[in-house]
Design a protein around this nucleic acid. Structure first.
Lengths: 179, 179
DNA sequence: TGGGACATGTAAGAAGTTACATGATTAT
DNA sequence: ATAATCATGTAACTTCTTACATGTCCCA
């Protein structure tokens, strides 16, 4: 039974290995860190735990080196590929904003203009940086995963999101000016 | 020691009680469900656990009814208000997109136009609904928390975000058309 | 040949998810 | 008066955060 208890982390592992072939947990980390990690983080402590779990579920196969570091190499089984395909066809839920800056603003009294100004200024700066990063990646040298065009697409969503954030915090700041 | 281990959930509890005065965990739930919950969910299982934790930290005071339901009423202590104020001044990190639809797209082969079309269409529909909800709340009757203008602000961010999502998924769909 | 960076892994505790369970209120 | 719903709470399990710990490689 392929079990319904597979979370997003499971599919990041499956998706990566399906794309990259046999690899170690650390390979996964490096790959995640500068691709999917920009919009969906993969916790360190799951790096080794999640592949193990998938092995027990029969979705991954594992071989361990005899010499040296005795690293564990994982690869996707047929069952794993099937689970991945099923997941891709399953309905996707809605994201949650979960913006720490927004949360602080929510609990800041409307009349505390100094606090709001500081918050908005800080958020503007960070979002500008992030947007610049995305644009470098979009415009710069051919990305490290030329065979992975969907990443360019997700970058586009990142760009749109950062623009929305800049618009928002700028509006907040502008609404404060007269004060 | 007020402990550095306070997460966002803690500040939602503190912020609510600081605003609303003594209240029960269930009051918290109702309030969260149609305000801050739109961009930062508060898990059911934390509803009763988190206030308890804050009591042991001295940030909340608790009184329990003698009769009937023996409900627990919480209120913020001076230490609690201080912790809240500190948090509001602390630097806010960046949000993570964490969009399940984006994640599926990332792991869908570029050439599988049928899958991409289905995904984009579904996401468009959901984001349209959400946007309509926000606009009702913005334009409709004066919101249930007239004393809480920041909520109108966070709604504005929600509106901008949903618009960005609609733009994005529409672009995805348009890029597929010729196929 | 030794110091830093890279690579690999574990563990404890916090937070989140899901399902269950039951006492009050309300409506019909 | 009784079914539905609201209100209140617990328990089991999964995931995440954070910190620690160590081994291996590179290169000056």
């Amino acid at each position: 039974m392929p079990d319904a208890t597979l979370g997003p982390s499971a599919f990041i592992v499956l998706g990566f290995l399906n794309h990259a072939g046999p690899a170690t947990a650390y390979d996964l980390k490096r790959w995640v860190d500068d691709s999917v990690g920009f919009f969906w983080s993969f916790p360190r402590s799951q790096l080794y735990a999640e592949p193990q779990r998938l092995v027990t579920l029969g979705l991954l196969a594992e071989t361990q080196e005899e010499s040296g570091r005795r690293r564990r190499l994982y690869s996707v089984t047929d069952a794993g590929r099937a689970a991945l395909a099923d997941w891709r066809r399953s309905p996707a839920g809605m994201p949650e904003l979960r913006d720490p800056g927004l949360l602080r603003m929510f609990f800041t009294p409307e009349e505390d203009h100094a606090a709001l100004r500081a918050l908005a200024a800080g958020q503007l700066r960070q979002h500008q940086e992030r947007l610049a990063t995305y644009r470098d990646m979009l415009g710069g040298e051919p990305c490290p995963w030329p065979e992975r065009p969907p990443f360019t697409r997700t970058l586009r969503m990142g760009e749109l999101y950062e623009q929305a954030c800049l618009t928002f915090w700028q509006e907040v700041l502008d609404g404060l000016r007269p004060e």
